[in-house]
Amino acid sequence: MSVAAPKREVVSSFRQHYWLFVLPGTLVIGGVIVFPWAFTVWMALHEWNVTGDHAFVGLANFVNLFGDQRFIESVWRTFWFTLLATLIPVILGVWAALVFHRSFPFRGLLRTIFVMPMMATPVAIALVWTMMFHPQLGVLNYLLSLVGLPPFSWIYDPATVIPTLVLVEVWHWTPLVMLIVLGGLAGLPTDPYEAALIDGASSWQMFRYITWPLILPYVMIALVIRTIDSLKVFDTIAVISQGGPGTASETLNYFLYLQAFQFYNVGYASAVVLVFFVIIIALSLLLLYARQQTKWME
């Protein structure tokens, strides 16, 4: 007893010092993340251009925003893009994780190659895709012609530009889903499989009734991350289609970029940021809620 008392005292006095470790980080976060947020709210209530002239306009920016056809269309386009660019990588990523969880020759090397797209610089890769999409000289249309298919319009047709950009996004980010789900698979207990093998369960039954419920929480994390990242897509669009043809691939983030740094409507763009953020939070909460439900079902 006489030993425990001073120990607790020492420990608790140290606990009071932990804030010192967090202080520098807090200052940096405050400077580069919290300050911009506060300033954005302030700007959204003003008519503001980049020369610094500004006047208080209340909620006028928001009212204008919801009457702006170009904005509304960009929101729906972003949802369509996000749906495709979330579901396809998640499905392929789960499949890839199941494959790379098996042991086979050269697994380490092949996994490294598979992971490389998510590390590669998006701008650089987007340049290569742009050349591959070229209607006359691009290698993709040549490959299609080899299997007897007509040339595809890729990024040159409003109807095909979004699926084409999704293709690039899938190429980049399927590995991230794979890594997250692989982490889940690595922690699976072995007992249920042994029991199932003894009971003569098929591979499909083992996946459906053992593996799937156990990795579902990880799949949900991947789903949330992919949703957030797809909503924010920018690099790929800026390089490959610049929002075109017309405005056919102008997503929310690209609309925001144009308003802020091409048209210099700073106040208007700040209103876009806030609406954008509400959308991201709402979708994330929805998915996290769904994740809670899957956990409860276990």
């Binding site: 976060i29 580069v32 993340i33 300050f35 911009p36 947020w37 300033f39 954005t40 700007m43 980049v50 610094g52 957030i228 909503l231 924010k232 920018f234 983030n253 925001l256 970029y257 802020a260 740094f261 700073v266 763009a269 700040s270 940021v273 954008f276 953020f277 991201i280 939070i281 994330s284």
Partner: peptide, 20 residues
């Protein structure tokens, strides 16, 4: 806090920081 930082598009930090 970190999750919120990850959710926010980088562009939205850029407008106020650019003015600063």
């Amino acid at each position: 806090l970190i999750l919120v930082a990850r959710m926010t598009p980088a562009l939205s930090y850029l407008i106020p920081l650019f003015l600063l």
